[in-house]
Design a protein around this nucleic acid. Structure first.
Lengths: 224, 224
DNA sequence: TCAAAAGTGTTCAGGGTACACCCATGG
DNA sequence: CCATGGGTGTACCCTGAACACTTTTGA
């Protein structure tokens, strides 16, 4: 390190992850109760500290993996929170990330061992620190991105019905969507391919299974 | 500080400011040549280090003020860049901000003393580190926000003509706009008030002067 | 035969875009 | 009288939203 850098103040840097999940058909968020002061016992986001030998993005991935066992999920940086006294325990600059996962795919045991709970977004408790701001920011970003990027498909099985896809959009957007309009847009999108397969688990009649094809490059977007 | 925090790695945190400006009718960016290693002599963004007793946002404001003498300008956090080796001189985590200013209002002497130059966006040189990513991100954010938030009015004099307003939008959006359609949208927007004043400096005929009124709360938006 | 989910088209309104000419004035 | 910038209205298209009934089949 050159002399120029030596003299500057240094900071603890953390990542706080807003982990959204689909938990029996509803949008939920992974929260834990803090196990140490300050604010011990208060609900809070999943956080961790950045280490010297990892990038900030990698720190976020590590935290997500530790908690859920999942890799390669939709994960984005939301904002960096750097107020001087945002954490009363110490000066900590926190980079907030958000992820959206399928609760069924993650590793329950990991979540349990971290004393984390899935909480329905409609019943979100008060959170410590500036975590409420983080959740608001993250949710706004999630809704925006979800409606314009093909995030949904990483949450569905490889083959899915249009009803499943629509329900997923409805949960995230937080509103109901007209079935015919929805299917019209799907039909116009070359990335969503109908297969010959039929799913009979949800109805007597059976529903056509579709597949997402991202090989279409820049066209692999789906804007509901 | 509780014992819990003591053991964590600490980082130098910087802010890098992408300062866009309107310089004789074109979108420009404020750049400087690095005066120390690594990458001495390379064009780079305006940066500074966060200090222990200031928030990250305040650090960005301080850097902007030091460079331009301006306060209360449109200034937003863009993204945090945290790759391990993004700065070959040391591990530095950098929070990127962007600002858009009116070049005529700032303090030239400050800029000069920092050896900073306004460079037309069309002629942007190669930058050191990950500064090119920062500029791309910042420009994308600026265009998005400029088209949906009333940023323009802080760059214009208190009274302005519709031609001035339109030219400003054209410069930032980087495309030309139909005059009649533009004026139609202005007319529909209650925040842009026509005054009785006439500006005769730009034409023989004279142009009506308008004023922005942000007292209309949530309606004080102008979406071109 | 009925319950439960799948599937299917049309209409309408509003917003966005394209487009060309007259006006006022100072020099 | 002319050069310069200021100012104005309409037609069309396309997208997005609203809306209800038929089909299939296992139990």
């Amino acid at each position: 390190m050159t002399a120029f850098y030596r003299e500057h103040d240094r900071f603890i840097v953390s990542v706080d992850c807003v982990i959204f999940g689909l938990y029996n058909g509803r949008l939920s968020i992974l929260l834990t109760r803090r196990k140490f002061e300050p604010e011990m016992g208060r609900w809070s986001l999943m956080g961790g500290f950045v280490k010297e030998n990892e990038s900030v993005d990698d720190a976020a991935k590590r935290v997500l993996f530790d908690l859920t066992g999942l890799e390669n999920v939709f994960m984005r940086q939301v904002h960096t929170f750097g107020a001087v006294d945002r954490d009363p325990g110490a000066r900590v600059i926190s980079v907030c990330y958000c992820a959206l996962i399928n609760v069924d795919e993650h590793d329950y045991k990991r979540v349990r061992s971290h004393d984390a709970n899935w909480i329905d977004m409609a019943e979100m408790p008060e959170l410590g620190f500036d975590h409420h701001d983080m959740v608001e920011n993250a949710l706004r970003m999630l809704k925006r991105r979800f409606a314009s990027e093909p995030i949904a498909f990483s949450l569905l099985p490889r083959f899915f019905t249009l009803t499943q896809l629509q329900q997923l959009y409805e949960v995230v957007v937080g509103d109901s969507i007209d079935k015919r309009n929805f299917r019209k847009r799907v039909a116009e999108n070359p990335c969503i391919e109908k297969t010959e397969l039929i799913d009979k688990t949800m109805s007597r009649r059976g529903a056509a299974l579709y597949r997402y094809n991202d090989k279409l490059g820049s066209q692999s977007r789906f804007h509901i």
